[in-house]
């Protein structure tokens, strides 16, 4: 187990180094950092002085090491566009994205699992067929289109829910603001989190359905029926419980995707999160923000993958035996 964890850790660090290299190359060689920071009327001497002060004349390896050293301390330099520190900008935007992603994941799980169980148990009823049809549409419709349709129906035509922004937010500590405790904040959260979570919901539903169908055919379920256990005990205590390992894994792995796909949802709903910041950075070629976002997202992905790998081994004893006998 420890050797397995260590091997995975080394892999994770390797991936992070590669991503930092890409990020560094982007930062250092795409566009000239000095040109981006100074005005047109800056003299060549001042430019040269700034270049020296930023350490751009040092050997590339030294610069790369310094880049990593700073990145570890969340120092990503100054945004070209906003003239503020990138870490500060991301710090302001991070809570909005994390809240949205968390609520979406919760929505996907709380709706997806029961729908999956239902369609697995009663596969031939019209409701189950309807769920499956909806899930097919959820997979085929692009996220931004779902968002637009929701805005069109719920906000524009019915006027029930707000269509943009975070509503009223409350400062919790430092720069962390939350919209989870105000009425307008919660209302603003509904449409974006449905939009963002719909794809994951259909994914979880199809997964649970498939696993349920498989588990219900196994001998131990037949045996449990023969013992005369109640349907409820069989379906939830025995069948559902055994489908949960892949569900946990997939949900965990999907958290990274949710944060990445938040870029689209945040654009549709003008949600002031990290994704919107990144998109503005791409449009205005704000390299420090792009590099920082890339590193941050990569770190989240690597961390989640690492944790899911560990959790998987911890939860499923069969994998552990496989490791031990090797």
């Amino acid at each position: 187990m420890l050797a397995f964890a260590l091997r995975r850790l080394v892999q994770a660090i390797g991936v992070m180094l590669v991503v930092s290299l890409i990020s560094f190359v982007l930062f250092r060689f795409v566009g000239d950092p000095v040109n981006q920071l100074v005005g047109v009327d800056t003299s060549p001497e001042e430019r040269a002085a700034l270049r020296e002060a930023l350490g751009l004349n040092d050997p590339v390896l030294v610069q790369f090491a310094r880049f990593i050293g700073k990145a570890v301390q969340f120092d990503f330099g100054i945004s070209y566009q906003f003239k503020q520190s990138v870490a500060g900008l991301i710090g302001q935007r991070l809570p909005a994205t994390l809240e949205l992603s968390f609520v979406s994941a919760l929505f996907a799980l709380l709706v997806g699992v029961p729908m999956g169980v239902y369609t697995g148990l009663y596969r031939d009823t019209w409701l189950a067929r309807a769920f499956l049809a909806v899930s097919l549409i959820g997979v085929s419709l692009p996220t931004f289109l779902i968002g637009i349709l929701l805005i069109f129906v719920v906000s524009v035509n019915l006027g029930w829910l707000p269509s943009f922004g975070r509503g009223e937010t409350v400062r919790v500590f430092g720069s962390w603001t939350t919209g989870l405790v105000t009425a307008s904040g919660l209302q603003s959260l509904i449409l974006p989190s449905i939009t963002l979570g719909l794809f994951q919901m259909t994914l979880i539903m199809r997964l649970v359905r498939g696993e349920m169908l498989e588990v219900l055919r196994t001998d131990y379920i037949k045996f449990a029926r023969a013992r005369g256990l109640s349907r409820r005990a069989i379906n939830f205590g025995h069948a559902l419980k055994n489908t949960l390992v892949p569900v946990i894994t997939i949900t965990g792995l999907q958290i990274g995707s949710i944060i990445a796909f938040a870029i689209i949802t945040e654009t549709v709903f003008q949600w002031p999160g990290m994704g919107l910041l990144f998109l503005q950075a791409v449009q205005s070629v704000d390299i420090p923000i792009m590099a920082a976002y890339l590193l941050l997202i990569a770190f989240l992905f690597v961390l989640i993958n690492f944790l899911v790998d560990l959790l998987y081994v911890a939860v499923d004893p069969r994998i552990r035996i496989g490791e031990a006998t090797r």
Partner: peptide, 22 residues
């Protein structure tokens, strides 16, 4: 393996952004 851990849309966005900058 490394690329597969990132969603396609994110990779496309990054390449697009880098090309725009270049």
């Amino acid at each position: 393996d490394v690329q597969l851990t990132f969603p396609a849309i994110l990779i496309a966005l990054l390449i697009d952004g880098a090309a725009r900058a270049l």
